[in-house]
Design a binder for these strands. Sequence first.
DNA 1: AGTGTATCCTGCAGGC
DNA 2: TGCCTGCAGGATACAC
Length: 281
Amino acid sequence: MPELPEAETIVRGLEGRVPGRRITAVEVLYDDVIEGPARDFADFVSDRRIDRIDRRGKNIVLVLDDRGRVVVNLGMSGRLLIRTPGDDGPPPTHPALRFRLAPEGAGDASPVLVYHDIRRFGRLRAMEPTAYRTWSRSLGPEPLGRRFTAQALEEALSHSISPVRSWLLDQRKLAGVGNIYANEALHVARVHPATPASDISEGRAGRLHRAIRRVLREAVRRRGTTLRDYRAADGSEGSYGASLRVYGREDEPCPRCRTPVERIVFGNRSAFLCPRCQPRP
DNA sequence: AGTGTATCCTGCAGGC
DNA sequence: TGCCTGCAGGATACAC
């Protein structure tokens, strides 16, 4: 998926419509999208009110009135859609789970929060507050948060000999960056994706830090990147795809120097780079 | 510690 | 048209 900007866009789309509502029923169409027994999940959320919608890295977090959490990881093709019965538009093609939400008052329609996932790599996990804290602590810092500084990045990189692109994808190191934005940020920072993390000097770490934040902020502003499956909570598409510099643009000219963009594969994922702007370390 | 490989799934594009 | 291969915003488990 859905990386940080897409998760953030979904959260913003749900914020005005979901908090304050009670979950009156859960309908599980595919139990493989739930971690653990579907019965336990249904018991955990049934009749709970959703107080708040949060995000942690790429994950969307429903905060319940008893402080329990439902953590939604969208995998590759997950969507969280808010629908009101009777609203227009074609019905979702691959619903996997539905939360029926209570109407707010007389005459108010009861909305449905649909977890939709073509490939079903996504997961919904119910967590008690303690388990949630433990899980959250296992993730790295938020790239747009205060704790993620250039110094912190430089320090963290210095302990790893992994290729920097692999490092950026590791959610335990930094929470929210995936393959699209890792490649984009590395191009902006003029760092080759295969550069060993610890080879990144102080100056380049600073550049990379700025590039990560700049790319993610701009992608949030554009409501994410829709390549195929990603949609915001209202079903709309993100427009950052038009701003992509290298991701998915093999053989197209580098926006900076017109050299054809290269695709290489490591860590079982494609990496895209400009061989001139991002020379091999 | 780090890497390549495979797995979970479905859909789509491209080649023949 | 149809069949085949490869590829896809992720995460994890495994052997080496």
